[in-house]
């Protein structure tokens, strides 16, 4: 898993690439801690999943931690560009009801 970050109009855009599985989810969690969950972290966050090929429940657990943390500080998390098989799993888990998911990154940035 690789993660790139950039700031667009004051919104932190995080783009994980590759696979987030049980082995790499701790890496993903540490990156989230550094960028958005820690005390100095961003509160307005877009997660672009366009380059993400795979995520399992341990990776989804990290997203839930991030979403809860951002909700607690009146921040916002928007996910976008999710591949079909990942969107299916998010729907089954009800994550589409508790997280904001848009088709494109441009749509996601408009939510801020």
């Amino acid at each position: 898993m690789n993660l790139t970050d950039e700031t667009k109009n004051g919104v932190l855009v995080l783009s994980p690439q590759g696979r987030i599985d049980t082995r790499t989810s701790s890496e993903f969690e540490q990156a989230m801690m550094a960028h958005a969950i820690g005390p100095e972290g961003a509160t307005q966050v877009v997660m672009n999943f366009g380059g993400l090929d795979y995520i399992n429940s341990t990776g989804m657990r990290v997203l839930l931690i991030l979403a809860k943390r951002l909700a607690g500080v009146k921040g916002k998390l928007v996910l976008c560009e999710m591949k079909e098989h990942i969107l299916e799993v998010f729907k089954i888990s009800g994550f589409n009801q508790i997280l904001t998911i848009t088709d494109t990154e441009a749509d996601a940035l408009q939510r801020f």
């Binding site: 839930l64 809860k68 089954i92 009800g94 508790i98």
Partner: peptide, 24 residues
Amino acid sequence: VPDTTLPLEERPIGGLGVFLVQSL
């Protein structure tokens, strides 16, 4: 079995894996 209808603040962390298998 997780309750997938709970709002964000009440959602427990974890416990989705087997439920996903049964759904997929």
